[in-house]
């Protein structure tokens, strides 16, 4: 029991890092993804094409590679090259990557709202922006909840990739203790922590789905 309390401190610190990466990424990637999706479905062909290319790039290469690139290679790129400390580099990589996945989820959700809704809004005099804001996006939210739930749970676990930047997240903290003390107990505790975080998320999304169940499409 004493041993358990002893390792709890470092593991909780690791959890704090994991949660920070998770929450900041979510807070940045959701709006960015929404912006990308809106450009993607807009009638601006060139901009839409550029976004498609961006999504292809971000989904087509490993997240770890993107993170390594931003941390190690970006400083040497001419003009845009900046040297980011490890935490901002990790956030940048996660945000850019997850925004691409979110954008695809949002795009599918936006496009699943039928033409009749657009037409009804148009004949009532709503502009394109008003139609999006009042009619399409609110209906999109209900439809994207299941894939968003999936994706955010994946994000919780993906945060463990930041070990490549030598940051002390939950998994790295656990591994450090395992290697020091020759016991697998920290892994079990870490697993329980991850499970708890995904449980909270699952529950949160269930609440949301219930809230949106007041109407049917």
């Amino acid at each position: 029991m004493d041993y358990f309390t002893a390792i709890l401190g470092p593991l909780l610190n690791g959890t704090a890092v994991t949660l920070q990466v998770f929450l900041i990424t979510l807070a940045l990637a959701v709006p960015l993804g929404l912006g990308l999706a809106l450009v993607r479905v807009s009638r601006f062909r060139t901009a839409s094409g550029i976004v498609s290319g961006y999504i292809w790039l971000m989904r087509g290469t490993p997240l770890m590679l993107q993170m390594l690139f931003i941390y190690f290679a970006l400083p040497f790129v001419p003009v845009i090259g900046v040297r980011l400390p490890d935490f901002p580099a990790a956030i940048a990589a996660f945000t850019l990557n997850y925004a691409a996945y979110f954008a695809e989820i949002f795009r599918a959700g936006i496009q699943s709202v039928g033409r009749g809704q657009h037409e009804a809004a148009q004949v009532l005099g709503l502009s394109y922006g008003q139609t999006m804001r009042r009619i399409v996006l609110p209906q999109m939210v209900k439809r994207i909840l299941p894939p968003m739930s999936n994706e955010t749970i994946t994000l919780v676990k993906d945060t463990s990739l930041i070990y490549v930047l030598a940051m002390n997240d939950l998994l790295r903290a656990a591994r450090g203790i395992v290697q020091r003390d020759f016991t697998t107990m920290p892994f079990v505790v870490a697993a329980a922590f991850y499970l708890f975080m995904t449980l909270v998320l699952t529950w949160g999304f269930m609440r949301l789905e219930k809230k949106y169940a007041v109407y049917d499409d």
């Binding site: 809004a121 005099g125 709503l126 109407y215």
Partner: peptide
């Protein structure tokens, strides 16, 4: 008025009716 109604499913009846007067 459309054959398929095209009401806004996420709004109540009253919200459907006041949406355009308020927004537009």
């Amino acid at each position: 008025v459309f054959q398929q109604f095209n009401l806004f499913p996420h709004f109540t009846v009253l919200q459907n009716i006041i949406e355009a007067p308020v927004t537009v």
